[in-house]
Computed example of a mutant assay.
Amino acid sequence: MTTLPTLLNGRHAMVAGVGDAADHVATALAALGARITRITPPSVDADIIAAAFADAQSQQGQPVDLLVHGGAPLGVGNAETVSLDVWRKGFSADIDGRFLYASAFARSRIAAHDRGAILFLLPSPRITGGRTAQLSAHGALDNLVKSLAVEWGRDGIRTNAIASHVVDGFAQATEAARASLGHLAGYILSDHGAYISGMVMGIDELPS
């Protein structure tokens, strides 16, 4: 029987993204036995991303077989104050970046004829004022997760996401909710979660 400290033994996780939530997930995966390559800030340049995967394999002595992408901060503000240039740059850093890392990861796994798992960390889907960019990106990423899960499922590559207030408000979350983020990420990426793909899961606030 696999014990929790060895749940991800032999796995190599690249964790791309900025912020406390991505840092926490990286620490949680390391505690479960995974080797970690931390990328911050993540790029939106395909050549730089390809080089990051090659460097990670060289430094860790094994290819990346788990990918976590925490996206880029899209900020909060009234929709009427956001310029087109800011809108496009934010979406490129977030959605384009996630897609480019995922596609580079999938190409590597398919070429190796080996399995892999992708996990996107998303902000809460709660609809409130000032979150137009975040919520628009969330809708796009919800469909991206499902479509990639279907497309790459035959290649043994699973794609899932965690969407929660803990991701975009880590400092304000309870200790129980923070711990749940790491626990759920580890479970989804492990072989225990091998049946899970195409899902966007949340983390409810737990009683203290």
Rank of each mutant, 00 (worst) to 15 (best):
M1C: 03
T3L: 11
T3G: 08
N9R: 12
R11F: 00
R11Y: 00
R11T: 09
A28Q: 01
L32Q: 13
R38N: 09
R38Q: 09
P41M: 08
D45M: 04
A46S: 11
S58F: 05
D65L: 08
G70H: 05
G71N: 10
G75D: 14
N78P: 15
E80C: 07
D85C: 03
G90E: 11
D96G: 03
D96P: 00
L100H: 04
S103K: 15
S103P: 00
A104M: 04
A106K: 09
A112R: 15
A112E: 13
R115F: 06
A117D: 09
I118M: 11
I118P: 04
L121P: 08
G130V: 06
L135G: 09
A137F: 03
H138M: 05
A140P: 07
L141M: 15
N143A: 15
L144C: 11
D155Y: 14
R158P: 05
R158S: 10
T159Q: 06
N160S: 15
N160E: 07
H165E: 09
V166E: 02
F170C: 11
A173N: 11
E175V: 14
E175Y: 07
R178V: 09
G182D: 10
Y187V: 01
I188R: 01
Y195L: 08
V200L: 04
V200M: 03
G202R: 04
D204M: 08
L206H: 11
L206A: 15
